[in-house]
Nucleic acid binder design. Sequence first.
DNA 1: GGCGTGACCCCAT
DNA 2: TATGGGGCCACGC
Length: 105
Amino acid sequence: MDSKNNSFNERCYELLKLVPKGKVTTYREIAKALHTNAWRAVGNAMAKNKSLFVIPCHRVVRSNGSLGQYALGADKKSELLIKEGVIVTNGRVKDLGKFIHRFST
DNA sequence: GGCGTGACCCCAT
DNA sequence: TATGGGGCCACGC
């Protein structure tokens, strides 16, 4: 489980699972947590994610406050975030820095 | 073993 | 504030 044999994309899922409800994270933060600048690969991992019903992919948003894409649709993503307690307006997070969750202090 | 793609990010104007 | 252009990494074929 805590093995380091997991692929890069699986590590993204693990970090994502660490995000509590009512909070969100950014692709940039995940990449940083992995000590890499592969935000591209992170998004790619979500796009190919097979654990859509196991990983809260809807809690991942872009660094500029936009929600980004979602397997079920960006519209559904915003709905879920709002239900989680995140303030979303016009498809964008109102106070990203307030809901952002960082894996590092 | 190499190329293209992608749920992106940052900077300058 | 919005828009355009360039660049980064991992995965699949």
